[in-house]
Amino acid sequence: MNTRPKLNYPVPVTILTGFLGAGKTTLLNRILTEHHGRRIAVIENEFGETGIDNELLVQADEKIVTMNNGCICCTVRGDLVRILGELSDRRENGDIHFERVIIETTGLADPAPVAQTFFIEQDIAENYKLDAIVTVVDAVHAHQQLQEHHEAQEQVGFADRILLSKTDLQEAEVVADLETRLRAMNPRAPIKRVHFGETELFDILDIDGFNLDDILKIEPDFLQDVSHEHEDDISSFVFRTDRELDAARILAFLDIMVRDFGNDLLRYKGILNIAGCDKKVIYQGVHMLMTESFGNPWQDGEAKASNLVFIGRNLPKQDMLEALESCQVAA
Rank of each mutant, 00 (worst) to 15 (best):
L84K: 01
P111F: 01
A132L: 08
M185Q: 14
E244N: 08
E121C: 04
I43P: 02
F47G: 02
R90K: 13
D213N: 15
R38W: 01
G78E: 07
G209I: 05
H143R: 13
L28C: 03
D260R: 13
G85C: 07
L205P: 09
P111K: 04
Q170D: 01
H143M: 05
L178N: 00
I250W: 07
G285F: 06
S326L: 14
H143L: 04
F47A: 10
T25A: 07
I40M: 05
H287E: 10
L182V: 09
G276I: 10
S235M: 05
D203R: 15
N93T: 06
E49R: 13
E49A: 15
M257T: 15
D138H: 09
L205V: 12
D319I: 06
Y268K: 07
H150A: 15
A248S: 12
A252I: 02
K63L: 08
L308G: 00
H36Q: 10
G157E: 10
V175W: 00
R38A: 09
I15A: 00
A189S: 11
I15Y: 00
N45A: 10
C74E: 02
T50V: 14
V174G: 00
E302V: 10
N296Y: 02
F253A: 11
M67Q: 13
T106K: 01
V238G: 05
H141R: 05
R181D: 10
L201Q: 12
T25E: 04
I250L: 11
A109F: 08
I204M: 03
K304M: 14
E229W: 04
G21T: 10
T14K: 06
D79P: 01
Q170C: 10
D260V: 05
H141Q: 12
G94C: 12
L20V: 13
V11F: 11
A132P: 05
F237E: 07
A330V: 09
I40L: 05
Q224I: 08
G270D: 03
